[in-house]
């Protein structure tokens, strides 16, 4: 059981990390931020689930990050390319994130009628991640960025869903899906360099 004062800090952590993922296109920073984001998810889910079950989210999230990191490092070694972000692009992304934040500020308090039994910190954390994840998906065609966006949306969903469902099978399948997404992304990133025998 985590103390109540930690919940708003967790919401702040997932907010900053999701915006950080959006603004930073360097893969090393992105994967580090993803790891931090999963700590926030872990803290927000822990009031609802037993610690052993919550640990699956953290471990699968970090493993997903590790898979992505190893893949990107091997690709970067072969093809040293870095996506550079200009200041104007960052400002654009920050403004877009601000617009999503405005929507969330007006929508999340009203979502109480839909999600009565879900505590406010989980609702805020969950919806912030879902909103930023959608924005992330809307701004990219890169497999790594798409995967980061999907993992962010799924993390937000997990925070909310954990309050209403505590089945071990669900926790296991969600962990498999997180890891599966990372593995599929790794495959998509290295597939062009693979050769299939005729």
């Amino acid at each position: 059981m985590i103390p109540d004062w930690l919940l708003p800090i967790s919401v702040g952590l997932v907010s900053l990390s999701s915006i950080g993922l959006l603004l930073n296109l360097d893969w090393r920073w992105s994967i580090t931020i993803l790891g931090l984001q999963y700590i926030g998810v872990f803290l927000l889910v822990s009031p609802a689930w037993e610690i052993e079950l919550v640990a699956t989210i953290l471990v699968s999230g970090w493993m997903a990050g590790a898979v992505l990191g190893v893949t990107m490092s091997s690709i970067s070694a072969a093809q040293p390319q870095e996506i550079r972000t200009g200041i104007s692009e960052r400002i654009f992304r920050l403004i877009a994130a601000g617009l999503v934040a405005l929507v969330l500020i007006s929508a999340v308090p009203k979502s109480e009628s839909w999600f009565v039994q879900i505590n406010p910190a989980s609702r805020w954390g969950g919806f912030i991640l879902i909103g930023m994840g959608f924005l992330h998906l809307g701004l990219t065609n890169n497999p790594l960025r798409v995967t980061l966006g999907l993992l962010t949306i799924l993390s937000g969903f997990e925070i909310i869903y954990a309050e209403i469902e505590s089945s071990t099978l669900v926790a296991g399948l969600l962990a498999i899906i997180n890891l599966g997404l990372a593995l599929v992304c790794a495959y998509l990133l290295i597939a062009p360099a693979l050769e299939e025998a005729p």
Partner: peptide, 29 residues
């Protein structure tokens, strides 16, 4: 999970990932 496996089936080795495959992954997820 089936959709994730399908993405690997769809994208053959040696082939760069296309926008259709990524959209399939996004919408199914």
């Amino acid at each position: 999970v089936a959709a994730l496996a399908s993405v690997v089936l769809l994208n053959r080795p040696g082939q760069p990932v296309g926008r259709g495959t990524l959209r399939f992954l996004i919408f199914q997820t």
